[in-house]
Simulated scan of single mutants.
Amino acid sequence: MGSLLDAIEAEEAVVRGRVEELETQVAELMVRLEAERERLSRLVITRETAGELLARMAGSDPAEPAREPPRAEEVSPFAGAERRVVGVLAVPKWQPGLEPGVLPRVYQDILEVVGDAPGPVRAKQIVPRIGLAAETTKIEGTRAKLKRLVERGWLDEDSPGLFTPSRTRTTGSPNSP
Rank of each mutant, 00 (worst) to 15 (best):
R129V: 09
P69T: 03
V113E: 00
L89D: 14
E82T: 13
S60Q: 06
Q95I: 05
K124L: 05
L146R: 02
V19L: 10
Q125A: 15
V106M: 09
P92D: 06
P92A: 01
G97E: 05
L98Q: 07
A35M: 10
L149I: 02
P62I: 01
P160L: 12
E73D: 13
L33Q: 14
E68A: 09
V85Y: 06
R32K: 13
N175W: 09
P70W: 00
P100G: 07
E9C: 08
P69S: 04
V150R: 03
G80F: 11
L103T: 07
P92G: 05
E20R: 14
G119I: 04
L4T: 10
S166P: 00
L5M: 13
G131A: 08
A55G: 15
V106I: 14
L155P: 00
A66L: 11
V150G: 02
T171Y: 01
R39A: 15
Q108S: 06
E157S: 06
P77R: 03
S159K: 08
V150K: 01
G141Q: 13
I110H: 02
G97W: 09
L103Q: 07
R56P: 02
L29Y: 06
E52V: 05
S173Y: 08
E73V: 10
Q125K: 13
L132I: 02
V44G: 00
G115V: 03
G119K: 12
P77I: 05
V14T: 08
G17V: 00
E74F: 03
E48F: 07
V31H: 00
I8R: 12
T164H: 03
R129Q: 15
V19N: 01
P70S: 12
R18H: 13
V127S: 09
G97R: 06
L98C: 05
P70Y: 02
A72D: 04
R56Q: 15
E21I: 00
D109H: 10
F163M: 04
M57W: 05
G119Q: 11
G59K: 08
G161H: 04
L53R: 15
G101A: 14
R39V: 08
L53I: 13
P100Q: 04
E21S: 14
V91G: 01
T164C: 10
D6L: 11
E99A: 12
G153P: 04
L162S: 12
E112Y: 08
V19P: 03
F78T: 05
L132R: 14
P165F: 06
G141M: 05
P96T: 04
L98W: 03
T170Q: 14
L98D: 05
S173V: 04
Q108A: 07
T170E: 15
V102F: 06
E112L: 09
V106S: 08
P165Y: 02
I139H: 00
G80Y: 09
A72G: 00
E11N: 15
L5Y: 12
P174W: 09
M1G: 15
S3M: 11
R129M: 11
S3H: 13
I8H: 12
A13N: 10
Q95W: 07
R105E: 13
T49R: 14
L22Q: 11
